[in-house]
């Protein structure tokens, strides 16, 4: 049985990727099962989806904890989620990056496929929905299913122009994907996000440590640290960033009041500045600023 785990962000189509791959496998007469992992997170938050393919019926319905292949739809996820968690030794990794791919290689990984999926998706689909692009990269790395079966799954799922564009995206990714095999030297470099508010007081424990708690270890009636959601940096949900022009700002504070995520912070000089850790890039502040001092800019890829 082949186990593939997809990591994406809500709205990017990670779930659709898993389903399309399963559909293609089923069309070829194999057995497959695909499903997403649901959390409390909303649009833009990290999500994962699973796909299992086998020659006999797949009955397992649990999440995939030790995948053979991991597919990462969004480059910013490397900082947000432990994407390679539990990846089998000599496993495979498919990533969306515009960076030099070899820096993502690490010991124990057999092969890595890298493609600048965001660019391909932007150019062909006109939006950063990278799911079909990464499927192209995945089957370039390992022919889990035939290109034709995948195309036919895409055409069944989407219709008309959208289907054609997705097929184009898939084919282009297939061409442009770089596949690297491990020579045992490089290590995975995780890029840390630039944090202008670094040194800010942490409210709870580090999120990862916290997640290792068992509920039985907590005292009855125990309360988790007040405001500990501050450890959850929602800034990485963002695809657009508000940019403030000081010379227009009258320090009215409306951007601050209307921000759902308390991400406008007043500095001692009275001007407001965006807390990159939490700003989800919704654009309300730009819309509501009475003097037009804020405009939204596309967030540059890490």
């Amino acid at each position: 049985m082949l186990e593939i785990r997809f990591h994406g962000r809500g709205g990017q189509g990670a779930v659709t990727s898993a389903e399309l791959l399963a559909q293609a496998a089923i069309e070829e007469g194999k057995y497959a099962r695909a499903f997403p992992s649901f959390g409390p997170e909303r649009r833009g938050a990290p999500v994962s989806a699973f796909c299992r393919i086998d020659d006999k019926p797949v009955t397992l319905r649990t999440s995939i904890d030790s995948p053979d292949v991991v597919v990462v739809l969004d480059p910013s996820l490397f900082n947000a989620v432990d994407v390679t968690r539990g990846l089998k030794k000599d496993g495979f990794l498919v990533i969306n990056t515009k960076k030099e791919s070899k820096q993502f290689m690490f010991e124990g990984l057999k092969q890595l496929a890298a493609v600048n999926a965001t660019q391909i998706a932007q150019e062909i689909l006109n939006r950063p929905i990278t799911n079909t692009v990464l499927l192209g990269a995945l089957i370039r790395l390992m022919p889990i299913v035939k290109v034709d079966s995948l195309i036919s799954a895409v055409q069944t799922r989407f219709s008309g122009k959208i289907a054609n564009l997705n097929v184009q995206a898939l084919e282009r990714a297939y061409q442009e994907t770089q596949v690297l095999s491990n020579n045992g030297e490089q290590t995975l470099e995780l890029v840390s996000p630039k944090n202008e508010f670094a040194g800010k007081e942490k409210v709870g424990k580090a999120a990862k440590e916290d997640l290792d708690y068992l509920w039985t270890e907590l005292s009855p009636g125990c309360v988790v640290q007040p405001g500990s959601s501050r450890d959850n940096h929602t800034g990485d949900w963002r695809s657009c960033l508000p940019v403030i022009q000081k010379e227009r700002c009258i320090q009215c504070g409306l951007c601050w009041a209307f921000c759902p995520d308390a991400a406008q912070v007043q500095k001692p000089d009275g001007y407001f500045s965006v807390d990159l850790d939490y700003c989800k890039g919704c654009g309300i502040c730009a819309m509501e600023c009475p003097t037009g001092a804020i405009h939204m800019e596309k967030e540059l890829e890490l």
């Binding site: 405001g227 501050r230 995520d261 308390a262 939490y278 919704c282």
Partner: peptide, 28 residues
């Protein structure tokens, strides 16, 4: 409204890092 904003506390009792959708009016 500008006046109201000036009277609101800078303290956050509903801390950021919550998982509401981007642009959630309820969170505001």
């Amino acid at each position: 409204n500008v006046y109201a904003v000036k009277t609101m506390t800078s303290k956050e009792y509903f801390a950021p890092g919550h998982r509401a959708c981007s642009g959630c009016g309820q969170a505001v």
